[in-house]
């Protein structure tokens, strides 16, 4: 779990995508998701992947982080595709859909601080759910660090060893048990702190306004174009399928342009 690096990217980044308002990014993500859901054309979905890659490149997101997170669901999608798809191409589409949708989500989470990502959801669910959603993220940081420390301690005491799987499993289970107890102490501490700070049953998150409304509009417009293309190819697949390569070529050009536009900056920093 790269939670620390995700948060660092979301809060300290200063790319054009970081300037866009969270609502616009979520709206654009919803449209991209709609495009992925609508299409069963492997080239159209591959085009969406390329466009998202271009967005990630132009925003200078950490490539390894973004793509490792996006590739993670591919493992499970591969298993699902292997077990359920009735053709190779169908399986490829399933895996590509998983990676593309995940890439969209990852771009949002790498450019938007966590509270802003979930603020819209927080407004439609009961207070306890919305607040717990925000508390989860804070707890994640602390638990990951603590779990890492517990495992290190177990390793130093030779509790984790490849040659002794039973001993390793026992040590890991004890570490998880220790983590569980720690997490409840943490919960109690959090409650005490929240009560001291005057928490009365609702954490308020105010969404920031956009720093560049024109970029917001361009982002949502671009996502709308992707959704429209996907819909068009789905409705008119009989006539349009032979021309699917055009969409892919346009997306590839976009990616090349994005890479070229960031090249001088990358060169300077390297």
């Amino acid at each position: 779990m790269h939670i620390g690096r995700i948060d660092e990217s979301a809060t300290l980044g200063d790319s054009w995508l970081h300037q866009v308002s969270p609502i616009s990014k979520l709206l654009a993500f919803a449209l991209v998701l709609a495009a992925v859901v609508l299409s069963w054309n492997v080239l159209v979905i591959a085009s969406i992947t390329l466009v998202l890659t271009a967005v990630a490149v132009s925003a200078r997101l950490k490539g390894r982080l973004a793509f490792s997170l996006s590739a993670y669901p591919a493992l499970f999608a591969l298993i699902f595709a292997f077990s359920a798809a009735t053709s190779v191409l169908g399986g490829a589409v399933i895996v590509l859909k998983a990676v593309t949708a995940a890439l969209g989500a990852v771009i949002v989470i790498l450019t938007t601080p966590y509270p802003y990502v979930f603020a819209p959801l927080q407004r439609v669910v009961p207070g306890i759910v919305g607040d717990a959603l925000l508390m989860t993220y804070r707890s994640l940081f602390l638990l990951i660090e603590k779990f890492g420390n517990l495992l290190t301690a177990a390793r130093l005491r030779a509790g984790l060893h490849a040659g002794h799987p039973v001993r390793s499993a026992r040590a890991t289970t004890r570490a998880l048990g220790g983590l569980l107890l720690y997490s409840f102490d943490l919960s109690q501490r959090s409650y005490d702190i929240m009560r001291m700070r005057g928490y009365e049953g609702r954490l308020r998150v105010t969404l920031p306004r956009s720093a560049a409304p024109l970029i917001d509009a361009a982002l949502v417009g671009g996502a709308l174009l992707l959704a429209a293309t996907s819909l068009l190819w789905r409705v008119g697949w009989r006539d349009l399928n032979p021309y699917s390569w055009i969409v892919l070529a346009v997306a590839a050009l976009g990616l090349a342009a994005a890479a070229a536009s960031t090249w001088p900056a990358r060169g300077r920093t390297s």
Partner: peptide, 8 residues
């Protein structure tokens, strides 16, 4: 709230 947060 914090309890659900830590378990999640």
């Amino acid at each position: 709230v914090p309890l659900v947060g830590v378990v999640a």
